[in-house]
Design a protein around this nucleic acid. Structure first.
Lengths: 359, 359
DNA sequence: TTGTAAGCGTTATCAA
DNA sequence: TTGATAACGCTTACAA
């Protein structure tokens, strides 16, 4: 590894001049000509500053810590991590990863991260819920991922999926495909997402001028009772399409359909949220899956965090492209991204089907 | 943050004495009494050495880099990362995570990791295959995860699942549950795991004294053709159980069973490899899933790597507990772990159903 | 056994 | 404009 000293010698300048020039802060301190010479020889030598030495001096490390209680408990974790890592990489940051048990270990891991000098923290949950950020993080730049701390705009900045929009789009997709008796197979666990996705479903029906038949909406848990409930739904309400809260719920629809000799994507249509992918991998493409925006939450969470660290606000324009275009009906695996970024003191504004909160 | 200097002052000793004492290298240099006093005051002050400063001096960072081409492309990535992180954490290491595209970006990310001074690298793939480690890593401590470089024991140390044992155990599990006509639903893609799992299946049948009926073995890809093939298998060979290469293959068995009014876990039994979990989540527990040892690969990979970094060999005893006990037949979701660690110059030895390669 | 000081590679201060 | 030099917090060679 070549050092600043070597560059200075080769370029016939002082280390000061080199440091200043390479950080583009030479104005009025180093002659333009010299600065250019320095940059040239630095490039020739393939010089890259030693981040450790730099950090020791500046007490800024250009690293962020990704803290997750349950990296492995859901298949989606990887996407959130990937998104965060991509953003970090784009902005010249490194990402340190720790897993915690949410208890004593958490304190230790956070302490370790702090010792390594991470500039900020991504605190990730694996499904939207109210979750308080550990005390050890107060005062540190932090962004909550897939959770809120319940203190709204006074709380820690957070990124959550726009669940209403997800339900709306899934349902509208089925409507546009010509379905008229669209069922909703929800989840009877108390999840934040549940009523919101259902709300989107109801809104879409309303906007399309379709009657909202309550007998088409059910909530199920799992195993036989869930299957039985779905079978009753098939037989009593006779839906021509299903919007399923998630893949697990969609499974029962597939099973019930198979038992009736019906083929999904032919006799009935199914759209489910989530991404275990098995459905879209194994069966024909049209009955499909809407992915939760885990990648986007990670990506925009990291951008948001770094913007806080560096003291420049994340411009609203930065966030709008999280909303992808609605794919054509014949696209093989249509997916739409819904992701909203909320920060303290922000104002809500509806935009292109998703919700963007601006500062 | 309290510094070594502050500890020295408070304890009435020199920084040298403090450094030596806290690193437990005081023998013959610092009076025992003084060393103890130093350690006490260090504890009182909650002193923790600054890793950056230490690394700058020692050029060892106690960090490892986890390199993955495709963190997000499979649901299993998270587990491997978790395992590696757990091991790192236990051994006092931090883990830096980067994602690459396998091309130009990879070189950049590796360079970045090197600049940050990572002591070693975990190079992870997401399914067992032959994969060469990037040149940039030659000379650096590296462990390949879920892949081999094809150079056998002369190559880079690697960790891969013991696929034969997986197939053996899955099949034996069905045999022990009383099944007699066990089908194998494989995957017709050219995967390393395919013939190995099948081999385990055949071995188990043989060991149990059951006839190996070739008409019970099929390989399918996906969509309608896969479903049709499985349906033919149902109708022609009349199996009472299925060992499926993975969840995606298992899906077709569920679908075909449902179409015949058969209930899995009642009329037929199914064991599948992989962990999308949807099967075990939604249906009765007995027809179940064998998870690939992603966590273990990450965990033992990191231990292996750190042992290389620190220059002390990983003792075989360390690896044996990767082989969990065979769970009782009535366990809700029986899982068995198969993970083998291979290193240069090692010798194979069969142990407790799994394969452990000893140095 | 103890402590002083050099050095790791930067950035920042300040005198020239 | 320029370039010594101190400082960041630690480890370690070496002198006392």
């Amino acid at each position: 590894m070549t050092t600043i000293k070597e560059v200075a010698e080769k370029a016939g300048a002082s280390v000061t001049a080199v440091s200043l020039s390479l950080n583009h802060r030479e104005n009025g301190h180093v002659k333009k000509e010299v600065a250019q010479r320095i940059r040239r020889t630095a490039k020739e030598l393939g010089y890259r500053p030693n981040p450790l030495a730099r950090s020791l001096r500046t007490s800024r490390t250009r690293t962020i810590g990704f803290i997750s209680e349950e990296i492995a408990t859901t298949p989606y974790a990887g996407k959130m991590i990937l998104g965060a890592q991509d953003a970090a990489s784009e902005l010249g940051y490194m990402m340190l990863l720790v897993n915690t048990d949410g208890k004593g270990k958490e304190t230790d891991e956070i302490a370790a991260l702090k010792r390594y000098g991470t500039d900020g923290f991504l605190y990730a949950k694996m499904y939207d819920r109210i979750s308080s950020v550990p005390e050890d993080l107060t005062g540190c730049p932090t962004v909550l991922l897939d959770a809120t701390d319940g203190r709204g705009k006074d709380g820690v900045p957070f990124i959550v999926p726009d669940e209403v929009a997800i339900g709306y789009d899934a349902t509208m997709y089925l409507i546009r495909a010509g379905c008229r008796r669209i069922a909703y197979v929800g989840c009877s666990e108390p999840l934040i997402a549940e009523p919101l996705r259902r709300k989107g479903y109801v809104n879409a029906l309303k906007d399309a001028g379709l009657e909202h038949d309550p007998s088409l909406s059910i909530q199920v848990l799992n195993n036989r009772p869930a299957l039985k409930a779905v079978e009753r739904l098939f037989d009593d309400a006779r839906p021509d399409a299903f919007f399923c809260f998630n893949d697990a719920r969609a499974w029962y629809v597939y099973e019930a359909a198979a038992r009736r000799g019906l083929t999904v994507g032919q006799d009935i249509s199914v759209v489910g949220v989530d991404n275990s992918r098995i459905i879209s991998e194994t069966f024909d493409p049209r009955p499909t899956t809407i992915e939760l925006p885990h990648y986007e939450m990670g990506y925009w969470g990291a951008r948001k965090l770094i913007s806080i660290i560096e003291g420049h606000p994340l411009k609203p324009a930065d966030t709008t492209n999280t909303l992808a275009e609605m794919p054509p009906l014949d696209a093989p695996c249509p997916v739409r991204i819904h992701c909203s970024i909320v920060e303290r003191g922000s104002v809500t504004k509806r935009k292109n089907g998703g919700t963007v909160h601006e500062a």
